[in-house]
């Protein structure tokens, strides 16, 4: 396991150098270099098994006991949003939001965060009473209330239905605009990547294969020809449909 050092300059929020992680002798991350600017929204795309979740867990420091090497620099204040909302079912919504938060005014901050994700008035609800989308919004509130410099999200909307997901994309973009944390979000949904990201990284064989900056202004419309062009390019990078898969077939 690599050491986390805290020597970041003002222009980088995350930096990894030669990051390697392997499971049972198979390298999942293979000398990966990554830099994320403060306030930048980076989406990691990749086929299953491409190492995107492994990278995220490494950044979160959640990979104790995993074999690996390399350097990781991440900010002090990190929040993680998981695919499951991971709310404690036996604590009420507000208690979940302020879990582990120290200092006075934690509950006030928690209430504000809940209001920001549109759940004002649900402070005393049990998580089991909420819909999947609402639960994930509580999880977002829980991550934001900590004022993170870096937000790590592992397929946070993967378990939601399509309509709820569209609404969550809007919410996440708005929250990002307001709080400006650096975000690294993992997904396998190409459209989600194009809707959300400032920059999309496609992971391939344990390294960053393709890197794409997206400059379409928000709100991004999937029927925009630029959107379609980027989607095609990303799908090709993932080996679906594009010219690259033809090459592979040849």
């Amino acid at each position: 396991m690599a050491t986390h050092t805290r020597g970041l300059t003002e222009t980088t929020s995350v930096r990894t150098r030669g990051l390697t992680r392997s499971f049972e002798g198979r390298a999942v991350l293979d000398g990966l270099d990554l830099e994320v600017e403060p306030g930048e929204f980076v989406v990691l795309l990749g086929r299953s098994g491409s190492g995107k979740s492994t990278l995220l867990r490494a950044l979160a420091g959640l990979d104790d006991g995993v074999a690996g090497s390399g350097e990781i620099d991440v900010p002090e204040q990190i929040s993680v949003v998981f695919q499951d909302s991971r709310l404690l079912p036996w604590q009420r919504v507000l208690t979940n939001v302020v879990l582990g938060l120290r200092g006075g005014g934690a509950r006030t901050k928690g209430r504000e965060a809940l209001a920001e994700v549109g759940l004002a008035g649900r402070e005393r609800a049990w998580p089991g009473r909420l819909s999947g989308g609402e639960q994930q919004r509580v999880a977002l509130a829980r991550s934001l209330v900590r004022e993170p410099q870096l937000l790590l999200a592992d397929e946070p909307f993967g378990a939601l239905d399509a309509l709820t997901r569209i609404r969550m994309h809007g919410l996440l973009r708005a929250l990002h605009e307001r709080h400006r944390p650096a975000i690294v979000l993992v997904t396998h949904d190409v459209d989600e990547a194009v809707v959300l990201a400032d920059r999309v990284l496609v992971l391939d064989a344990g390294r960053i294969g393709t890197e794409l900056r997206i400059d379409i202004e928000a709100p991004r419309d999937p029927s925009d020809p630029r959107f379609a062009a980027i989607r095609t390019e990303l799908l090709a990078a993932l080996g679906v449909g594009g010219p690259r898969s033809d090459e592979e077939a040849a």
Binding site: A60, L62, I78, S79, V80, F82, D84, R86, L88, L99, G100, L101, R142, R146
Partner: peptide
Amino acid sequence: RYAELSETVRLGHGA
């Protein structure tokens, strides 16, 4: 997974 969550929110042992 709740233990993992508790680590990410830096929950103390008592809490």
